[in-house]
Write a protein that binds this DNA or RNA. Sequence first.
DNA 1: TACAATACGATATAAAGTTATCGATTTTCT
DNA 2: AGAAAATCGATAACTTTATATCGTATTGTA
Lengths: 225, 225
Amino acid sequence: MEEKIHRPMVLRLARYLRVLQKLKGLGFVKVFSNNLGDAIGATPAVVRKDFSVIGISGNKRGGYLIDALIDRLIEVLGKKETERIIVVGCGRIGSALLDYREFIREGIRIVAGFDVAEERIAPEARIPVLPLGELPGFVAKEEIEVAALAVPDQVATSVFEMMVDAGIRGVLNFTSVELKCAAACDEEGCQQECTVHNVNIGLEIENLFYLIRLKRSSAITESVE
Amino acid sequence: MEEKIHRPMVLRLARYLRVLQKLKGLGFVKVFSNNLGDAIGATPAVVRKDFSVIGISGNKRGGYLIDALIDRLIEVLGKKETERIIVVGCGRIGSALLDYREFIREGIRIVAGFDVAEERIAPEARIPVLPLGELPGFVAKEEIEVAALAVPDQVATSVFEMMVDAGIRGVLNFTSVELKCAAACDEEGCQQECTVHNVNIGLEIENLFYLIRLKRSSAITESVE
DNA sequence: TACAATACGATATAAAGTTATCGATTTTCT
DNA sequence: AGAAAATCGATAACTTTATATCGTATTGTA
């Protein structure tokens, strides 16, 4: 009883929401499980299962009402006020993030960047870039909970620990270091927990090469024979 | 019999390799399953399982020999000559990729960028940026198989189809459009298959917010009670 | 030389997640 | 109005992935 909302499912829910908002923008009112499945790369069965888990019923023959779906998804995924984040490390990747305008459309707002390099500090910029030392104060004052980490590997863990101490609870990690909250929580009554998601572009590319090599020599999932 | 190499495992194998190469650089000779597990965020049992699947034995009491592991991993993951890729779309994200120096250390080389905007074309740059129209010829001549796609969402599918037609077999997709190879392979005898990995930063951030909200109201995996 | 400690290896078990099946219901077409 | 088609909903089966257990071998120490 009481089906669980597991991680892959949460990701799908967020995708549904995006697609649905686009559909609504186009004037659609209803949607079918197989359309949604196509749109996010899942089977109709998965879509129906997901919706049933979050307690949404469609019409027996007529698909799902987009408005109701959107409302429920927003409810489940959490209030969608603008989500405020910071970017730590404003090198190539970090500054690309600062410039990435799509975030606004997605309800995400970068409120500041942080760096150690003098020449990158720019407190008056559209998105201010501040010295790393000011991070703890800023995070506390602005109640920031999520950050993107794009510093050099060598300093990744130490900067990470500092962020967790400052109150950051979720990190999108662009370094290739495996960040463990344990490292920052060695002390006794440490209640801080920090969720880390890794975005490892190099690894993804390597993996692509592996998979296409594999396909060429025909193997893995398909045609075992 | 004949354990399979599944996807999550492949990702781990690539991570092992990186860690091992660093360890070797530090002069280490042997390594234990729990150390490696810590380094990549897995349990010792997983590490041993993985190694047993790819046919590597450690010393009963003494851990694994790093050199042997590295050799075997390189063998399994495929020859590690430099992996050549292109970047399609040289806007904010695309040009960040072009500038990303870490790739070199990871054996990945971006050999060209492509774009439609006149002002971004720069055939003489360190990494040349060419008009999109030249992509098919370039891909054929240089035998490129993998590309990063960082174009605006609106043109994502059409550019993708063009790339697949040109011979691209693996795509790292930075757009928020779900790319399906089917779309590019509607014709009959279409043998082209293209593996797509999605890197959806906005989605990852949303997901982080969701997870930390969830933790705050104590639920999910831990403490069901 | 014998015993204790440790870490591997393999099998088995469990948990998670996806797909398949089947009945029910509503809409549409004749 | 009646029949057929289509899609939802729930359960169950199956596949995939991770964990746990236990035996074994090796090394170090007494």
